[in-house]
Amino acid sequence: MTGPGAPSRDELRAHLLRHYIAGDVATPRQNNLRHFRKMAEGDPYYQFGLDLGPWTYEETVAMMAGLAGTSPDLSHWYGDDTIDVERTLDALDAMGDRIGEAARAGSTVLLATGHPGALLDVLYVPLADALRAAGCTVPTPAEGWSYLSDEGRYGPEIRTIQYNKGVAALEGDDELRHTHHSAPMEAMLANLADESRYWPDLVIADHGWAGAAGEAGVSTVGFADCNDPALFAGHVLGKIEVCVPLDDFVLPRHYTPLTRYLMARADLSA
Results as ranks from 00 to 15, higher is better:
T2V: 15
P4S: 08
A6N: 07
P7W: 08
S8E: 09
S8G: 13
L16Y: 06
L16A: 07
I21L: 15
N32Y: 06
L33V: 08
R34K: 13
F36H: 10
R37D: 12
K38F: 07
E41D: 15
G42A: 06
P44K: 09
L50A: 09
L52C: 08
Y57Q: 08
E58R: 12
M64E: 06
M64K: 03
A65P: 00
G69P: 01
L74V: 04
L74T: 03
Y78L: 14
E86R: 02
A91R: 06
I99T: 06
A103R: 03
A105Q: 13
V109K: 01
Y124W: 11
Y124S: 03
L131Y: 02
C136V: 08
A142R: 08
E143W: 03
S146G: 10
L148Y: 02
S149D: 13
S149W: 10
D150M: 06
G152C: 10
I161S: 03
K165R: 15
L170K: 09
E171M: 14
L176E: 01
R177G: 00
H178L: 13
T179A: 06
H180D: 02
S182W: 09
M188E: 10
M188Q: 12
L189Q: 03
W199I: 07
P200L: 08
I204Q: 07
W209K: 01
G211Y: 03
G211L: 09
G211H: 04
A216M: 08
S219A: 14
T220Y: 05
A224I: 04
C226W: 00
N227E: 12
D228K: 10
A230V: 05
V236A: 13
I240C: 07
E241A: 11
C243F: 02
L246S: 10
D247S: 12
V250Q: 15
R253T: 08
H254M: 13
H254L: 11
L258G: 02
R265G: 04
S269L: 05
A270N: 11
